[in-house]
């Protein structure tokens, strides 16, 4: 089929139209969120809704950023998300390597234990986890969040990376071994560099998981100085009246950086998902 063919072109236009329509629906809630965040009158919902505010203001953003210390919450979330990503990538790639390229006693058991951990809703362990956090002196601490998020995500990322590691040709591994490279060197100089897309994917998932987590942070963080973004945003929803403009300004502060990061990383990400998902 040549590109110049009119039938083909009509086809492409139709596709773009459909995709555009779908995209519109997908982003409409965000558009409304953003539009509300720039509106001055924030308690009463106006009817009919206007998409472009008649008197746009950045007051909500200023109030969220400085008045409600969202700058601080942003930094907290960033710290937790980055440190979790680092810990999870390191530990899960090591585990994935062990699973993908070694045979060892108890492999099956360890594997099943990890898998079982994935099947059960994480929220059910919240009380024993809380007591554990207390005993480890990790309550009300950002590093505590990192430790628990990492523990919670390491199994899943191990599965993700293992599939990728297995596809790295054994021949390369053997060639390096013959050259005298030990397992550690092979891990750092063969497996990690060749798994960049998978690592990027795991990094995105881990980062997002830590950035967005709500329930555990709500449970263990008391000090307002140590709140993360989701906790702080939920706290803005008042008991008796919600200042929607403020809530959405704060939400935008939480969402936009994630989108930016995703846009930049998405090429790697797509490659990673493709490698992980295509196995038919």
């Amino acid at each position: 089929m040549s590109v110049g063919n009119p039938r083909h072109q009509r086809h492409v236009s139709l596709r773009i139209l459909l995709a555009g329509l779908a995209a519109l629906i997908m982003i409409l809630p965000f558009v409304i969120m953003l539009s509300t965040s720039f509106k001055p009158q924030t308690f009463v919902l106006e009817m009919p809704p206007e998409l472009i505010p008649s008197e746009p203001t950045t007051r909500n953003y200023r109030e969220a950023w400085s008045g409600n210390s969202f700058a601080k919450y942003f930094a907290n979330s960033l710290y937790v998300a980055l440190s979790t990503t680092f810990v999870v990538l390191l530990l899960s790639s090591m585990m994935a390597y062990a699973f993908a390229r070694f045979d060892f006693l108890g492999k099956r058991i360890v594997f099943v234990v990890l898998l079982a951990g994935l099947m059960i809703p994480g929220i059910i362990t919240i009380v024993p986890a809380f007591v554990l956090a207390k005993n480890l002196n990790l309550l009300d601490s950002l590093n505590g969040l990192t430790v628990f998020y990492s523990g919670g995500m390491v199994a899943f990322m191990t599965f993700l990376l293992r599939g990728f590691f297995e596809k790295i040709p054994l021949a390369l591994d053997e060639a390096m071994t013959i050259d005298g490279a030990g397992p550690v060197r092979r891990f750092f100089h063969l497996y990690l560099p060749l798994s960049r897309p998978a690592l990027a994917t795991a990094a995105i998932f881990t980062f997002l998981g830590a950035w967005d987590e709500f329930v555990w942070a709500l449970t263990v963080i008391n000090d307002p100085e140590k709140r993360t973004l989701p906790v702080a945003i939920a706290a803005l929803q008042g008991q008796r009246a919600t200042e929607w403009g403020l809530v959405f300004a704060a939400s935008a502060i939480a969402v936009i950086p994630v989108i930016v990061v995703y846009v930049f990383a998405q090429r790697q990400f797509i490659a990673g998902v493709t490698a992980g998902a295509v196995k038919d």
Binding site: F102, G117, I124, T125, S150, G152
Partner: peptide, 30 residues
């Protein structure tokens, strides 16, 4: 080989056991 595998496995698995498996077992007990 087993030994090498354990070295790679241990940090992650230990963390998993502490943060996920232990509370899970404890939750069952509760």
């Amino acid at each position: 080989e087993s030994l090498t595998a354990y070295v790679f496995l241990l940090p992650g698995f230990a963390l998993f056991c502490l943060i996920v498996a232990y509370p899970l077992a404890r939750s069952f007990q509760i």
